[in-house]
Amino acid sequence: MSRKLFTVAVAGATGAVGNEMIRGLESRNFPVKSLKLLASSRSVGRTLKFKGEDIAVEELTGDAFKGVDIALFSAGGGPSLEFAPKAAAAGCVVVDNSSAWRMDADVPLVVPEANPHAVAGYVKKGIIANPNCSTIQMLVALNPIYRKYGLRRIVVSTYQAVSGSGKKAIDELSGQTRAMIHDASAAVSVYPHRIAFNCLPHIDVFLENGYTKEEMKMVNETRKILEDSTIGVTATTVRVPVFYGHSEAVNVETKTPFDIQDIRAMLASAPGVRLVDEPSANVYPMAIDAQGQDDTLVGRIRRDESIENGLNLWIVADNIRKGAATNTIQIAEILAEKYL
């Protein structure tokens, strides 16, 4: 029996995540019949390669999705709000990487390792949302623990790479670093303060409750994905002078007692997880090892001896791949295999 093939569009194709989506579709051998690459009018005429073929970038418009089966969006929240419903109305299923649709009650929010069944909810609006990059990697690691022992509370502190802010932030960190090495002034544009040799406890805008929008994304998305509003979640998100790879210090309190060796064994066999945990040999997850990988690296696993049923983990993943492009493609794979 032949494998069904799909017409696929990538919206925001010329950005860092869009580029990674194109590479991922090829490397994962997604069943593509034809590929449309969409971006703003500024990029029209550029060509990008897919399976050795040069494909011209077309303008992202409401009419661009005629005949498209699946569209992977990484064009930003505004374009997603405008064009995702138009794509869905044309009969296309959208998998959106922005924050625009994540908390819509009629749009499933999916981490394939945690709640693949939620993909079925695409029928309500024709849209599936990809979670925040930091939420994705945390739940890849915590899902098996949650399923067996339950989670009463999660305390997470993130150390997020500048690539999460886009190419301008990457260029700014690079430029500031060179300037400081040469004892020159470092221009500040993307962030409110210098990021080189610094840490900023400020990602996205501050809200009335004192948290940032990024921090509340992790709170609300975690509860939606695990379908459990009773979990206490608190987050502090920090931008650090790293180009690629988000790191997280995660402390959880489980509902029932756990065996630490069982936790290790579960994570060693969990989908999408690579256990990296030999601290006596200086082996633990690092951003430089996660870069370019699809796995979520987990280590520094130990009891929190200050509280009953407490557990500490250090979780690292490539924010452009598993935190964005790869997770989006994995959602599309479930969609293509089971529902279309």
Score class of each variant (00 low, 15 high):
residue 114 A to K: 03
residue 133 C to G: 04
residue 283 V to K: 11
residue 20 E to K: 12
residue 191 Y to A: 09
residue 77 G to L: 07
residue 248 E to C: 09
residue 150 G to E: 12
residue 284 Y to D: 00
residue 9 A to E: 08
residue 6 F to C: 05
residue 116 P to A: 13
residue 112 P to L: 11
residue 21 M to Q: 13
residue 118 A to R: 03
residue 114 A to W: 05
residue 84 A to K: 05
residue 140 V to Y: 07
residue 5 L to V: 07
residue 86 K to R: 14
residue 110 V to T: 01
residue 235 A to D: 01
residue 314 W to N: 02
residue 226 L to K: 02
residue 220 N to K: 11
residue 185 S to Q: 10
residue 311 L to W: 01
residue 186 A to M: 10
residue 242 V to E: 11
residue 25 L to K: 06
residue 314 W to H: 10
residue 284 Y to R: 08
residue 248 E to W: 03
residue 87 A to L: 00
residue 189 S to V: 14
residue 272 G to T: 07
residue 299 G to L: 07
residue 154 I to L: 03
residue 208 E to R: 11
residue 299 G to Q: 05
residue 289 D to R: 14
residue 294 D to A: 08
residue 18 G to Q: 04
residue 76 G to E: 03
residue 269 S to Y: 00
residue 336 A to N: 05
residue 163 S to N: 14
residue 340 L to G: 02
residue 304 D to K: 08
residue 63 D to H: 14
residue 192 P to I: 01
residue 91 G to R: 00
residue 294 D to C: 09
residue 47 T to N: 12
residue 267 L to T: 01
residue 227 E to Y: 03
residue 323 G to W: 05
residue 266 M to R: 12
residue 71 A to I: 06
residue 317 A to N: 09
residue 311 L to M: 05
residue 55 I to G: 04
residue 102 R to K: 15
residue 55 I to M: 08
residue 143 N to I: 00
residue 262 D to R: 12
residue 37 L to S: 05
residue 289 D to L: 15
residue 171 D to M: 14
residue 242 V to D: 04
residue 268 A to L: 09
residue 59 E to Q: 15
residue 305 E to R: 14
residue 312 N to H: 14
residue 334 I to G: 03
residue 229 S to A: 14
residue 50 F to H: 08
residue 290 A to M: 08
residue 314 W to E: 04
residue 265 A to D: 08
residue 230 T to A: 15
residue 228 D to Y: 07
residue 115 N to C: 11
residue 120 A to R: 13
residue 95 V to W: 01
residue 325 A to C: 02
residue 201 P to W: 04
residue 187 A to I: 09
residue 284 Y to E: 07
residue 272 G to K: 04
residue 295 D to A: 15
residue 317 A to S: 15
residue 85 P to F: 08
residue 209 N to M: 09
residue 220 N to I: 06
residue 238 V to D: 00
residue 17 V to Y: 03
residue 82 E to R: 15
residue 264 R to M: 12
residue 193 H to S: 09
residue 75 A to F: 02
residue 212 T to P: 06
residue 120 A to F: 01
residue 35 L to M: 07
residue 326 T to M: 07
residue 184 A to S: 08
residue 288 I to W: 03
residue 336 A to I: 02
residue 268 A to H: 01
residue 119 V to K: 07
residue 296 T to K: 02
residue 98 S to K: 00
residue 134 S to C: 15
residue 255 K to L: 15
residue 216 M to E: 13
residue 70 I to A: 05
residue 198 N to V: 08
residue 64 A to P: 00
residue 271 P to A: 14
residue 28 R to M: 13
residue 225 I to V: 13
residue 301 I to N: 08
residue 115 N to P: 01
residue 65 F to I: 02
residue 124 K to C: 03
residue 53 E to P: 00
residue 340 L to R: 09
residue 129 A to H: 00
residue 24 G to C: 12
residue 248 E to Q: 14
residue 317 A to E: 04
residue 27 S to E: 14
residue 83 F to V: 02
